[in-house]
């Protein structure tokens, strides 16, 4: 019981699965920096989380507008700076300047209540 409480205190609730429509993405700015630092994509009823950082330069964000991480048919994640396309399932770039490189996957947890959590240590480790 104590351990469960501690874990909850060390985690941040990002929302629930139903916050995401199928084939939709959402960015998060937990530190209120003015720019999202990671994003979650719901695709084929699974959630995928990545750092909002294109491997092309390593320190520039992906979308042209907030939450616009997917291409028009929600088939790929897109970096709007130079049109790089990434596979949603593994973050691998299949077209564009960072061909073959990968987005950095961010570990998130889904509770039995369909809540989406991120651990504080992950936030620190990934500088989110």
């Amino acid at each position: 019981m104590v351990q469960s409480l501690k874990l909850t205190m060390n985690k941040i609730l990002l929302g629930v699965i139903d916050d995401f429509a199928e084939e939709q993405a959402k960015g998060f700015d937990l530190n209120h920096s003015g720019s999202d630092t990671f994003f979650i994509v719901r695709s084929k009823n699974k959630l995928f989380a990545y750092k909002d950082s294109c491997p092309h330069y390593g320190d520039t964000t992906l979308p042209w507008k907030r939450h616009h991480y997917l291409n028009n048919v929600a088939e790929y994640i897109v970096c709007a700076a130079h049109g790089a396309l990434f596979q949603i399932e593994n973050g691998k770039c299949i077209q564009g300047p960072c061909l073959g490189q990968k987005l950095t996957k961010v570990p998130i947890e889904i509770s039995e209540q369909n809540e989406i959590w991120i651990d504080q240590t992950i936030i620190k480790e990934f500088n989110l």
Partner: peptide
Amino acid sequence: GYQSFWGPGRHLFGSNWFWYFKSP
């Protein structure tokens, strides 16, 4: 709601002021 890529600033070659935005 559009997202800046680089800028604002001023280039050296050409001396042009700049501000870049990611786009569709």
